[in-house]
Design a protein around this nucleic acid. Structure first.
Lengths: 130, 130, 130, 130
DNA sequence: GTGGTCTAGACCACC
DNA sequence: GTGGTCTAGACCACG
């Protein structure tokens, strides 16, 4: 099935984290069109959060056209997302993992790694906007 | 000086974004001990947000020991953060930028790039936790 | 300002009734772009329903692009709706009211009036679909 | 026979839509006392909904005294409803259809037509209540 | 004061 | 069993 996580630290609302994880799963091909998402109750129990929070995330996915809920049956993804081509994904993913392990070997703390990533993504985003 | 940004979409509270940006600046050496942060008013005007929000961010920074406010003078950083060594930073940064431009050349949308990064950071974090 | 109602009988969820009333207000020109909607708390107090229910309606309006919420300020409409031209509105509205009063004079109970309306709207909708 | 419809968008529970359609048929004389309703299975198959849902609607109709189920034979209406007199019905119905076609000619979208109807019915109901 | 998030728990509609 | 609606009430972010 599909495994969710919720990180309490980040300041990002839990329901948005769930939404992002599904969107990411679709973008990267880990989720395919028509796949069933875990039931609201299952996610709530697994992450020890309130079912309403999960339901809110699923509703948000419906609004975004990424999932449909069918009462009595469950919630299912719809593949309205352009997936990363598998070849590019494999290649880039492997290089990125390499980068991470190099950073770790260089003695960077996770916090420092994250800072570098964030800084560069910020730059990239500024470039797009400009 | 130091330039702040606030992204409305992300779900991260504005004041936390400001805090993170200062922390990141310190971690990466873009901010040095004793540097002056822009005034509350200047940030508020520049980002079109409420001065209270900026003030809250600066208060958090003080609380975290990353900055001190001197009445009538402004807010100044304190270097209580382990900076990434310049050499490692330069090397890793350049490789990461290379990775980004390759991803872009491979035709990945910004959204897809972000998804890959997030997915892999998620994995790394799981690894640490485990 | 703008006045909401909630009809308990209809079986339509309260939050959807609120959404429909705003949409209708925009369609008919009773609400203009940029008008402030009553605050969540005001609506909740006025209709004696839970603030969360009102918030849900307002969020739905945001998803539909019909309103935007600004924390600390309120919720405001956006005019992304094609309004009925005032002239046509006036003419048709008056004739329809005439029809209603004729139906009433003919001795039709409200329930019967509603049945006729529903039946004919059903027919129209079938015609569109076909 | 009698044809049911279910509109998924409206927010009205499917089983209530079925109940209302029978009630309306009786009010307008489209259904006469003793007429047989389509079998649960036929309705379920035709509308692609669960037979339980149809059964629930028929149960409600029995409860409201509008139909009776005869084991092994089917469900039949009972005429316990005050029908709209045929003359008034014909006259009002034709005028209302005229109004609809005028609205359409005036360029109103179905959504706008519905908005006008709803707004005026709302007003009427307020008047009754007042 | 505004809207937003989350919890806890009840009840309903649908399969 | 599934998802959906609503309530009550706490706490947070923003102006």
């Amino acid at each position: 099935m599909f495994a969710f996580r919720v990180l309490d630290r980040s300041g990002v609302p839990a329901y948005l984290q769930l939404v992002d994880q599904v969107r990411r799963g679709l973008l990267l091909g880990h989720l395919q069109e028509g796949d069933q998402l875990p039931t609201v109750r299952a996610v709530a129990a697994g992450l020890v959060i309130n079912p309403n929070t999960v339901a809110k995330a699923y509703r948000e996915l419906e609004h975004a056209g990424l999932a449909v809920a069918r009462a009595g049956q469950g919630t299912f993804t719809t593949g309205k997302v352009e997936q990363v081509p598998a070849a590019a994904y494999a290649r880039l993913s492997s290089r990125l993992r390499q980068w991470f392990s190099d950073a770790q070997e260089a003695g960077l703390a996770p916090e420092q790694v994250r800072a570098m990533i964030d800084a560069i993504m910020d730059d990239e985003q500024r470039r797009e906007t400009a």
